[in-house]
């Protein structure tokens, strides 16, 4: 092997503990997390539709769950996941065209997607509760 007797002057591969935190890294991880959240939400949608198709008696527990604190919190999280995955999905579709694919634009749009995921569900919650 070439260089077997030489001290290692080659660059070391990036180490997990010395990575600087990047917002683009967080935005990528959130995309997967929100995708898994929406997977659960879509399963809930199918179960909700089946309960609805089975008549008022079968639907009663579904309505009780949806209007409980746990159900409302779950719906809030699913809506936040949708808002994030939707906004971040737009970033991915833009990148597929080759646009905005540089560190500065990517960081900026990552913050926009995160901001949207925080504001959109809160705004919907506010509109629903102010309207009532």
């Amino acid at each position: 092997m070439a260089g077997a007797g030489r001290p290692a002057a080659r660059p070391l591969s990036p180490h997990l503990q010395i990575w600087r935190w990047h917002v683009t890294m967080a935005s990528s991880i959130f995309h997967r997390f929100s995708g898994v959240g929406l997977y659960l939400g879509a399963a809930g949608l199918a179960i909700w539709l089946m309960a609805l198709a089975s008549g008022p008696q079968a639907y009663a527990p579904a309505e009780a769950l949806l209007t409980s604190w746990i159900g409302m919190a779950a719906l809030y999280l699913v809506f936040a996941s949708l808002a994030y995955h939707w906004a971040n999905g737009v970033r991915h579709l833009l990148w597929d065209t080759g646009a905005h694919l540089n560190p500065k634009a990517a960081s900026g749009s990552a913050w926009l997607a995160i901001l949207f995921a925080l504001v959109a569900p809160a705004a919907l919650f506010a509109v629903l509760n102010l309207g009532a």
Binding site: A42, A43, L45, A46, I47, L49, M50, L52, A53
Partner: peptide, 13 residues
């Protein structure tokens, strides 16, 4: 399975 159940439920309703 979830897609079939959801689509069937929509049609039935």
């Amino acid at each position: 399975a979830l897609a079939a159940a959801a689509a069937f439920a929509v049609l039935r309703i």
